[in-house]
Design a protein around this nucleic acid. Structure first.
Lengths: 312, 312
DNA sequence: AGGTCTTACGACTATCGTAATGATG
DNA sequence: CATCATTACGATAGTCGTAAGACCT
């Protein structure tokens, strides 16, 4: 709110008359009179000469009025911008995501978001899952698109989509023979126990794929022998194709990589919990901005479609 | 005074910590906390994200802080200028005076004033006495240097100097013969009654010299026959020299005109009140500014000296 | 336990409106 | 006497500080 003093003084100056100004300002005339006197007392200088023809600014008054007008203008700009902010005509949003999701999931969401809110500046922060979580906690990232599990209890999230992990098997490996089908299954299964004591190709420990893989293998009580470490699941997949070991790959990645120069992918039994979830994550402490809420809404509309791959 | 909101928000932003900011601002920490919350509520937008590492401005907050700083800067300028005004390091003063006094009395005062207060803008308004009085009432002139009598009771004044009016007599006129001297008199006297029924050269009715002259002649019960009207006493004086009539001239004017091509000047009896006063005049209603008071002081020191003419 | 921010409550002060007073034309 | 500014006074609302609560490290 604009300080009353400024409005009062400038309006009195404008009308040269306290009564008229009071009417215009919707205050009682004595109140305005007192207010002007108080301001003058506080400043230690007369702002108006009370002449028989009304109130006319003194030298000090002229200076005050000039500056008051400048200040009022700034206040009005501020108010306009705040109404813009609350109407989403301006704002800023930092979205954090992993490298893979940055190219896979984000583009569609961003396209929808910027179409709907073209005046919101979007900044994308890419990094590994744990790094993004850290950024969310610090408040440098407003919203993250990540995969569960999220163990950090400073972060809350909503689940968008659950996705299976598949076992990548070298095409030449004998265990291909033992693949089987299940009722209602989307494809061939294989028993992960067959890979016990066999080498695995893994991603780095800070990567969510590695964390999920580790968990699955733990569930299967398989003591992993890491053979290669890579940052990219796609690389891991190719290494499997070259018969260098096994790896676990999220379903969407398999589909995305296509069938050229790929290993064989098999579902594995539910008991090992071979899945992760795509989630939208926020700080638990920092209240959601309007922009964040809108982003959430758009993400919820957009993302599930991405997993309806065209049949090939 | 600078609005608290601005200071509060910017200080909190500066420290990123309400406790520290509260300490710095000499307010209780809960008060500051509440204050920030209230401001946010009023604006309808969060200004700070409360993160584990302290308070960090949101997008809206950044904008607010930026503008708040601009506004604070303007307020500070305003404060500085007001302190300048009260220390007479700046200001404006409108001085009104008659044409004659503008060249006779004013230069010395102005020189002293501007030496002492070089930063005060001085504006000089010249006009006839009644015009200047009008300007004083309207507040367009702060201080007037005028001659009494001032009949306008909206004006108050302090007397600087009293001055006699002298009768100007053509050198050839027979009444020169009847001049006489008095004990303690500064010069020759003449009986103004000798000019009864003789023509007079007068100034315009709006001029103070005319008003004083009229009064003196009334006091002497002389029914005037105006022969010529002029705006300048000097012109009148010359016309007297040319034997075209009589006129009454203030003493300082006589001395100023010098003796070349002058009529003869005679004192006249006190009973006709042949004098006026030099006064500094102000509006009764408009309180005196500091500059006006200082001007008054300097005028009181300066003006009396002007009437100590060097003996010639 | 020590730090932080927020909520609760009582006290105070500033500002308002109505009414009365003063000043002016 | 009509208009305008100022002073008087009671009511109200905003702001403060102290104390207590909530939360994180």
């Amino acid at each position: 709110m604009i300080p009353k003093e400024l409005i009062y003084v400038t309006t009195v100056a404008q009308y040269g008359n306290i009564s008229k100004a009071a009417e215009r300002l919707f205050v009682a005339q004595p109140s305005l009179s007192r207010c002007i006197l108080r301001i003058e007392r506080d400043l230690g200088a007369e702002l108006f000469k009370r002449t028989s023809e009304g109130l006319k600014p003194t030298f000090a008054g002229e200076y005050y009025i000039e500056n008051a007008n400048k200040i009022i203008r700034l206040y009005k700009e501020l108010e306009i911008q705040f109404s813009n902010i609350s109407n989403m005509h301006m704002g800023r949003l930092a979205v954090g995501t992993t490298t893979h999701l940055g190219s896979f999931a984000l583009p569609k969401i961003l396209a929808n978001f910027t179409t709907r809110f073209p005046k919101i500046e979007l900044s994308i922060v890419e990094g590994v899952s744990t790094g993004i979580e850290e950024e969310i906690l610090k408040g440098r990232v407003d919203v993250g698109i990540l995969h569960s599990p999220i163990n950090n209890h400073g972060i809350k999230y909503t689940v968008i989509h659950e996705e299976k992990f598949l076992l990548a098997v070298p095409p030449d490996d004998p265990i291909n023979e033992q693949a089987y089908f299940k009722d209602g299954g989307e494809g061939p299964y294989i028993d992960i126990q067959l890979t016990a004591d066999r080498p695995y190709i893994l991603t780095h420990t800070s990567q969510r794929t590695r964390q999920v893989t580790t968990k699955i293998l733990e569930n299967a009580k398989i003591d992993v022998k890491p053979r290669y470490l890579t940052k990219s699941i796609q690389t891991a997949s190719r290494l499997v194709r070259d018969n260098l070991g096994f790896t676990l790959v999220p379903l969407s990645y398999c589909k995305l990589f296509g069938s050229a120069y790929s290993p064989n992918y098999y579902f594995i039994e539910e008991q090992y919990q071979p899945s992760w979830e795509l989630v939208i994550a926020y700080s638990k402490d920092i209240p959601l901005s309007k922009a964040s809420k809108e982003f959430n809404k758009i993400a919820l509309e957009t993302l599930p479609q991405l997993y309806d791959f065209p049949n090939d």
